[in-house]
Every structure is written in C-alpha cells, then in structure tokens.
Simulated assay, not measured.
Amino acid sequence: MSYTNILSEIEDGICTITINRPSKLNALNTETIAELHEAFKEADHDTEVKVIIITGSGEKAFVAGADISEFADFSVRQGEKLAAKGQAQLFDFVAHLATPVIAAVNGFALGGGLELAMAAHFRIASDNAKMGLPEVSLGVIPGYGGTQRLPQLVGKGRAMELIMTAGMVDANQALTYGLINHVTSQEELLPLAEKIAGKIMRNSSVAIASAIAAINAGYEDGENGFETEITEFGKCFGTADFKEGTQAFLEKRKPEFPGQ
C-alpha cells in the first residue's frame, strides 16, 4: 500500500514505519494518523513481521506534535471527538497490538509525538532527543493518552510537573525517569532498535502476544492483570510454539518457533 505521509518497509521480519513530513517536523495530522493506523494494521496482520519499529524522518524530530492548524477553531464536542477518534484509531490501537512495537525517538517528541512513543511497547532515543507534553501552553491538555501513560511510566509527581510546566526533558533525563530504555547516537539509533528486535524475534511470537495482553491488563480499569496472566499462561499450553519450545529445551537445541 502506498502512503503520502509515511514510509513502511519490511526487511528480515522487521517492519520499519517512518513518519515522513520533514517540512512539518513530522507533525501528526488526521491524514497521517489514518495512514499510521493502516500501516500498523497491515504489519500486524503480516505473518512475516515479528517486530515493528516506529520512527521519524530526518534528524530533528520523531514527531514535533499535532498539526494545530487542523483544530484551532474546534468546538467542545469536536474536541472530544478528535481525542476519542485519535485514541481508538492509533494510540490505543498501537498499545494493544500483538506485534511488539519499538519507538525509535530520533529528535523532538512533543505532544502527540510523545503520546505516540508512549503508546509503543517501549522506547529508545538518540542523544539529541527531547520529550515533553506542552499542551497546557496552548490552553489544552494532552488528549491522546498522555495524562494516563506518562504517570504510568514516570510516576504521578514527575508527570504532573512535566505536564503543568509544559517542559521538556532530554534523552538522559528521560532515561533516568524510566520514560525510555536506552540512549544512543543518532547514527546508531535504528541499528540498536534492530538489534533489540533481533533478540525479540528469537522468541515465540505467540507467547509475546500473550505477554503484551497480560501486561496491558494490569493498567486497565476493570481488568485484573493477574487473572489475565493466568488465562494467557494457560492458552500458551495449547500452542505449537509451547510444544516446540519445551521440546527444544529438553533436547538441548535452539527452538524453531512456528508462530502458532
């Protein structure tokens, strides 16, 4: 499928999705959000894809925020619809994908950009990256899950301060906060993401999907993460991957998971 605002490439089991609006610092508009949804959905349904990497084009920005010109004159109802649709179409959608998603933050990740990175299953960043949720400086709040995911990742107090001050943190501070997992150079960012993806791909994709579901359940209202873990654990016993993994262990060989 061809896209206007993004690039999607598959190689060696890794789908790399690149937001490609460099003249707008890769800002998210409604068209880009829709294209990202389709690209993520397509990658998740592709049995050859084991890991998805999301990044931005160029060296300045992952995503510098939302395209403010699209909603500057919205009403209350339109604002609610914008947040609800965006969360369902992209941010919650990414968070609940069965395929692991790594955000490779290659510069500014502000507003919706940081919210997209936080929706990924984990994040790495280049040493020039800067992250923040500056929405209150525009008279609005984060609307794509930022008020929920940031405190889950860095704690309530730090999230309150970052959101209230509309401040930014650099990559090293983000690492200290637990917002990202690794910091590296701009040149080594995608190679590091691919290296981590390679480690993930050695394991059972079926078990990884179950682990994602169980971990997510612990952060959702009305869900009991422990119960979900028990259910997902049991389901694993009925998979071909479990049979292969345990047999390979007993035979002292590397498993060749069928992904079933």
Rank of each mutant, 00 (worst) to 15 (best):
I6D: 10
S8G: 08
T18G: 12
N26Y: 13
A27C: 10
N29T: 04
T30Y: 05
L36I: 00
L36N: 01
F40D: 02
E42P: 01
A43H: 01
E48R: 15
V49F: 06
K50A: 04
K50R: 11
K50M: 08
G56T: 05
G58K: 02
V63H: 02
I68D: 11
F71H: 11
D73N: 15
R77D: 11
G79S: 02
A83N: 15
K85R: 11
A88E: 13
A88C: 09
F93G: 06
F93L: 02
A98S: 14
P100I: 00
P100W: 00
I102Y: 06
A104Q: 02
V105A: 03
G107D: 00
G107Y: 00
L110K: 13
G111K: 06
A117C: 03
M118T: 02
A119S: 15
A120Y: 02
H121S: 12
H121T: 10
H121A: 14
R123T: 02
A125Q: 00
A125L: 01
D127Q: 04
L133M: 08
L138R: 10
V140S: 12
I141Q: 09
G143C: 02
G145F: 01
T147D: 13
Q148Y: 05
L150S: 11
L150I: 12
P151L: 14
V154I: 15
G155E: 13
K156I: 09
D170F: 12
A171Y: 02
A174F: 07
T176H: 03
T176F: 07
E187S: 14
E188N: 14
L189Q: 04
P191T: 07
A193C: 05
M201C: 01
S205H: 05
A207K: 10
A209C: 14
I212K: 11
A214F: 09
A214K: 07
Y219Q: 08
E223Q: 12
F226D: 02
F226W: 07
T231L: 12
E232F: 03
F233E: 15
G234F: 02
D241K: 05
K243E: 13
E244R: 11
T246I: 13
L250C: 05
E256H: 13
Q260D: 14
